[in-house]
Design a binder for these strands. Structure first.
Length: 861
DNA sequence: CCCGTGTGGTAG
DNA sequence: ATCGCTACCACACGGG
């Protein structure tokens, strides 16, 4: 995996956010995309929102004619606001009490509007209340056009962003989000690979579902026979008919006016049909998933096709039989999860989080990266405290090495499969169409296969592709050897990732040159460069010896140049950029070859006529800054001239900790969603403790299926096209308490009132971190800082404690003791990359350096 | 000017 | 089938 590893594999959800609607006349509206409401901390609003979820959950039997619609009622109406609210929500719609300018409201309901309001609401569709009433009566969504309050005309046509001339003052010529979305990598990949599935061009507009239209869900719906038995994952049953029926169950009409005066508590728990352990109102501890909804283990007979059909085409409450009710998202998921394979790989499996993180390459990449960074920074700190830091001679030549494995995952996995080395090989989880390619060897690249590509595309490019599985253990092992070799070199080391590092070897090289490293002395410069090359070469040899894999090395006089030199070095080589070559070398690169420049900035540059780095030099700085912003503009101005002020090994302290999952999220009711959020918070709390920090601000991240996205995205159990919603809350006091975090997170989730079946991704993040108080002082700081660096081989440890079975209340669990029996006396060098799940070293944090976890544990009774 | 929140973008 | 994470920076915008 090179420096460009998975360049495209992420940044997925974020660029698919804006979606505009085509109404019945094909008129374009810029839907205000981002939902939520202005101030969820205000209790009253909160409650109003919460009701929606409850009400919606109870009325899923109603024809969900307003699905995809989010309404706001303005002014006095007949029927009343409350009645309209109830009608809308109980028929699948969303409702917002307040407009905050960037909510996801699609329609404003009003009997009439003042001229001022007309302007204010210009970007919404304004309809009369009768639209709601008549639609419910008709059992289907009627064309809203017939109920317009404002006449057709300029008033409702807004946002002429395409017209560049409109935006002038802002100095940055900005395109609408939608434009960016349409040309994003993700969108284009979707089109390329799956243009037929996710958004069929003939798909009905979201506001006019065609109820009778068959849905393309037959195959997942009807399992031939259960290939995975329920006890493949003990502790949970497969989703049975009971769940399915529960999801579709008739629920008595919700009381539209829950009392509003119990302000002391978070909110009213949703009323339920089946007996569910009630949430404790005083203690914010939520019941675990399996205790809530999942029935005891029973072997269930899968539904027969007839039964599915009965459900699928169930008549919607007395409608004419031609009018079949489309399934709600919850019903859809319930049916989907009938397939045991699906259930196992989704939130229906209580072990899902652990299982998922075990298999996710991106999760591994992130954890590895954080661990390595912490370890190397701790090492650097220790070094600088023991030996006087010599200040760098200003103006001296620098020699920075950027070292990187060639197609890391593939190379490591190929050692077990030497017969494939000359054949095209990729690393992926499977060979299904949506499987992502994490790494590909050079023979595969010759076919045009790239990291991050989906299997479908890769197979089109190369039909004889060999797919090898991940071997995370082996990657850690190879990385350990890699870092052993790097750390043996005299210089300043900075970890980039599991397979990538920087070393500043300036001091060594200048010493070899025999000058002060400033003056222009041909001989000295030559000797310096030769020294750098020789260091690079010996590192490559060392890593090859120990791992059997090739690394490449880029050498330059700053990080930027080392990085771009690496491109030229690959594969299995090294390249040094001499000072006199810098401008020519950089100039011929495309702008997107620069670090920090990818599709988005690349496109902005393209719009102002810049394709190559040398083109940047033609622009004055002001132009660049006005197009890209002050920092980015300045940075690129510098980069194009070979300037990079960043130093190797700069210390950065962690500012956030988070846990998110945006795959396999398929809920059939609100309870499951909330339980899952709690599990995420448990995980987050665990990570906070591992990092010895607590957080004062929490952010909840939500991905919800876009209104125009199909129920089943092209990627199996993927999130597909989504809207994203982030909301943060500042806690009174910093905490690691999973109950507190969970309470806040669930509160935010509820406040949005999303249909649980439409959730596609969830995450929780802590910011405003503070160091956790160290345990009672014990060992000397010196000793602890020495211990801090040990990369421990995890002792043979029992499986990690299941997420929800822990009853520990203490900050440090005693199980750590068992895990790491005799720690203080092991002077091993770096022995293995710490297992991210069980082993952590102390993180750098502001304030006093906390004692290492182990040390603290040791001294507890 | 500062600050805060929310969103976008990027990299590994 | 499939495992689309996570930290960090920059920016826009709104309010003092």
């Amino acid at each position: 995996m090179g420096s460009r590893l998975e360049k495209n594999s992420d940044a997925v959800r974020k660029r698919i956010q804006g979606h505009a609607f085509d109404d019945e006349e094909g008129e374009e509206y810029e839907g205000s995309t981002f939902g939520g409401f202005s101030d969820y901390m205000r209790r009253k609003k909160l409650k109003l929102q919460n009701l929606d979820a409850d009400l919606r959950a109870q009325t899923s039997q109603n024809p969900q004619i307003f699905r995809g619609i989010v309404a706001h009622v303005n002014g006095y109406t007949q029927p009343s606001l409350a009645d309209l609210h109830k009608l809308i929500v109980s028929h699948g719609g969303g409702f917002l009490q307040y407009l905050d300018g960037k909510t996801a409201v699609t329609h404003v309901i009003a009997s009439q509007l003042t001229p001022k309001k007309k302007v204010e609401f210009a970007k919404y569709r304004i309809v009369k209340p009768a639209w709601i009433v008549d639609s419910v009566k008709a059992g289907k969504l009627l064309p809203w056009n017939d109920y317009r309050v404002v006449d057709e005309g300029v008033k409702q046509k807004v946002l002429g962003f395409e017209n560049g001339s409109v935006v002038s003052q802002a100095s940055t010529q900005r395109r609408g989000y939608r434009d960016q979305t349409e040309t994003s990598w993700y969108t284009s990949q979707m089109r390329h690979e799956n243009g037929d599935t996710e958004e069929p061009p003939e798909a009905p507009p979201p506001f006019a579902p065609e109820p009778g239209k068959p849905r393309e869900m037959q195959s997942p719906v009807i399992p031939a026979s259960p290939a995975v038995e329920a006890d493949d994952f003990p502790g949970v049953s497969s989703i049975g008919e009971a769940d399915l029926l529960a999801a579709m169950e008739d629920v008595p009409d919700a009381d539209a006016s829950f009392d509003e005066d119990d302000d002391g508590e978070l909110m009213r728990p949703p009323p339920r049909l089946d007996p569910v352990p009630a949430r404790s109102q005083s203690k914010p501890v939520l019941p675990p998933v399996q205790s809530a909804d999942v029935p005891p283990i029973t072997q269930r007979r899968p539904l027969t096709p007839e039964e599915y059909n009965a459900m699928l085409w169930q008549d919607a409450g007395g409608q004419p039989s031609a009018q079949k009710k489309p399934l709600t998202a919850e019903e859809h998921n319930a049916i989907l999860l009938q397939n045991p394979h699906m259930a196992k790989s989704s939130t229906a499996n209580p072990d899902f989080i652990n299982q998922y993180y075990r298999e996710s390459r991106l999760h591994h990449l992130s954890t590895w990266k954080a661990d390595l960074k912490a370890q190397l920074q701790a090492r650097a700190q220790e070094k600088s405290s023991t030996q006087r830091t010599r200040s760098k001679a200003p103006g001296a030549r620098r020699y920075v090495l950027h070292i990187d494995f060639d197609s890391f995952f593939a190379a490591v996995s190929l050692r077990q499969n030497p017969h494939l080395v000359d054949k095209p090989v990729v690393i992926a989880h499977g060979s299904g169409p949506g499987s992502e390619i994490a790494s590909c060897n050079y023979p595969a690249r010759k076919f045009g296969v790239k990291n991050g590509m989906w299997m479908k595309t890769a197979l089109e490019l190369c039909s004889e592709l060999n797919v090898l599985p991940y071997d995370f253990k082996a990657y850690e092992e190879a990385s350990r050897h890699f870092y052993d070799s790097i750390l043996a070199v005299e210089g300043v080391v900075q970890s980039i990732s599991i397979d990538e590092a920087l070393i500043d070897v300036s001091e060594q090289c200048i010493k070899a040159g025999g000058s002060d490293g400033k003056g222009i002395s041909e001989g000295s410069i030559y000797r310096e460069q030769e020294k750098a090359k020789q260091i690079a070469s010996s590192i490559r040899d060392a890593v090859r010896d120990k791992t059997g894999c090739e690394v490449s090395v880029g050498i330059g006089n700053n990080i930027l140049l080392a990085k771009v030199a690496l491109r030229k070095a690959k594969p299995a080589g090294q390249h040094l950029i001499k000072p006199e070559e810098v401008l020519a070398f950089l100039g011929e690169l495309e702008v997107t070859d620069l670090p920090g420049v990818a599709w988005s900035i690349g496109k902005k540059l393209e719009e102002i006529g810049v394709k190559y780095v040398k083109d940047i030099r033609e622009l004055n700085k002001e132009r660049l800054i006005s197009a890209l912003g002050p920092k980015t503009g300045q940075k690129l101005w510098d980069y194009s001239r070979g300037i990079d002020k960043q130093e190797v090994g700069e210390q950065v302290i962690r500012k956030s900790v988070s846990a998110e999952i945006n795959w396999g999220i398929r809920f059939i009711n609100q309870q499951q969603a909330e339980d899952f959020v709690q599990c995420l918070c448990d995980e987050l709390s665990k990570r906070l403790l591992e990092n010895l920090v607590k957080g004062k601000q929490m952010t909840m991240k939500i991905m919800r299926k876009a209104a125009d996205a199909g129920m089943d995205p092209p990627k199996n159990l993927g999130h597909g096209k989504c809207d994203t919603f982030n909301k943060s809350v500042v806690l009174g006091v910093a905490t690691t308490d999973k109950a507190v975090i969970g309470k806040e997170a669930i509160s935010i989730l509820r406040s949005y009132g999303f249909s649980p079946g439409e959730l596609r991704g969830l995450g929780v993040q802590m910011q405003k971190l503070e160091p956790l108080k160290p345990m009672a002082a014990s060992t000397s700081t010196v000793e602890s800082s020495q211990r801090r660096l040990q990369f421990k081989k995890p002792a043979a440890v029992p499986a990690t404690t299941p997420l929800k079975t822990t009853t520990e209340t203490e900050e440090f669990k005693s199980s750590h003791k068992k895990t790491r029996p005799k720690l203080a006396d092991e002077p091993d060098p770096i022995e293995e990359i710490a297992n991210p799940k069980k082993e952590r070293t102390v993180r750098l944090m502001e304030g006093p350096i906390p004692l290492p976890l182990e040390t603290s544990v040791k001294h507890r009774p």
